[in-house]
Amino acid sequence: MITLEPWMMLVVSMIIFCIGLLGVILRKNLLIMLMCVELMLNGVNLSFVAFSKMHQILDGHLTVLFVMTVAAAESAVGLGLVIALFRNLRTVDSDQIQMLRD
């Protein structure tokens, strides 16, 4: 009889992290790239909680609270940057943003 164990959660968290990383590399839309960063942060949060369960301490849960705060601040500033870029360049495609190259 198999029961639920923390290492299964760790495997899921690593898979989600890698999918998010792949999205950041492959996509060109800045909004979707930011969403994939959120996905990566969520994968790491899940591994914090799973390690916390595995070690029978609660410090992982506290770390998750701080990571959530950082994620909220990061998405607010990141979306503000995307809006500022869109106002100047009329695009959210990361390949079109090449003012430093010209």
């Binding site: 923390p6 959660m9 909004l31 969403m35 909680v49 799973a50 369960k53 994620a71």
Partner: peptide, 30 residues
């Protein structure tokens, strides 16, 4: 499932409640 009830509640409140509304709002704005 892992017994992290506070984290589960905050996940729904902060991520789906705040961050995703921000994302959908920006998509609408642009």
């Amino acid at each position: 499932l892992m017994g992290a009830h506070l984290v589960a509640a905050l996940q729904i409140l902060v991520y789906t409640g705040a961050i995703m509304v921000l994302f959908v709002f920006v998509i609408m704005l642009l």
